[in-house]
Write a protein that binds this DNA or RNA. Structure first.
Length: 265
DNA sequence: CTCAGTGTTCAGTG
DNA sequence: TCACTGAACACTGA
């Protein structure tokens, strides 16, 4: 479940469970794909007995700031998430790591498809992969003129450009489609051909969508009724919006794209 | 059995 | 160097 709002929700839940507490135990499973550049053993040793000061996020990455470096850095890939519970019996299927905190709270990262990553960094914000991220729309969304200038250099379809983490950190497939739907922009449009008015709308909708999704704790059942999100799933040939407009599916930027020709130009 | 998939990376091309 | 495209990665669930 991992686009910006889901990761921000994970960050807040992790902060509630861990901030100010020590990590008493670290359980791991052997997985040289998900653990990148660090063995589970060394990872566990770096975290054990440390106090968590706060939890950070940029784009789709989340990290724990401990009282000693290095710090753990997580990416949830397609199917990773953060689960918080108290009883060991609730340890999720496909778990990769589980922390036991002072007070008995447990925090685990499961990841069925193993596209997620667990890393160790001395200063996550200034090292790869975070160093290469663009702006995070929840933290600092640039002015429309700045966006317009960036988009002017890109000839790829706007849908593909929205997915570029080096520009829009944290935007994933459903957010990109939602932004273009609400801004009334056809996903195939070359980014450099967007008008200033369109870039302005795109910026406003990106901000609105991310803020709203975060405000409802990334709980998609609480996303506004009119959002494309609720009707975009599964390449259903007769899918329609609430207003009866046809939803079509295409592959753009290598990803399934849902859009509404009647509303997007 | 087949295929899509809330993501990223890398090789190849222009 | 840079922008861009498409394949590869791994594996579940429909």
């Amino acid at each position: 479940m991992p686009e910006l709002p889901e990761v921000e929700d994970a960050r807040r839940r992790a902060e509630r469970a861990l901030a100010g507490r020590r990590i008493l135990e670290v359980a791991t499973v052997p997985d040289p794909i998900v653990y990148e550049g660090v063995s589970p053993r060394r990872f566990a040793a770096a975290l054990r007995h440390r106090r968590v000061e706060r939890v950070g996020r940029k784009g789709k990455h989340l990290w724990l700031e401990l009282d000693r470096r290095p710090w753990p850095l997580f990416h949830f890939g397609m199917t990773g998430s953060l689960q918080i519970y108290r009883d060991e019996s609730e340890r999720p299927r496909f778990w990769k790591v589980e922390l036991l905190a002072e007070g008995g709270g447990r925090v685990a990262m499961p990841d069925a498809r193993r596209f997620g990553r667990i890393r160790l960094r001395h200063d996550p914000a200034t090292e790869a992969p975070l160093r290469d991220l663009g702006f995070d729309p929840l933290i600092a969304l640039p002015a429309a003129e700045v966006l317009l200038r960036e988009l002017a250099r890109r000839t790829a379809p706007i849908k593909a450009v929205l997915l570029d983490q080096g520009l829009f950190a944290g935007v994933g497939n459903w957010i990109a489609d939602e932004v273009l739907f609400q801004a009334g922009i056809r996903p195939h449009r070359p980014a450099h051909r967007l008008t200033p008015a369109e870039v302005s709308r795109l910026r406003a909708r990106l901000r609105g969508i991310v803020r709203r999704a975060v405000a409802v704790d990334a709980d998609s059942d609480r996303f506004p009724r009119g959002w494309l999100f609720h009707r975009r799933w599964g390449r259903d040939a007769d899918a329609r919006t609430g207003r009866g407009d046809k939803i079509v599916h295409a592959t753009i930027g290598g990803r399934t794209t849902a859009w509404v020709p009647a509303r997007q130009r």
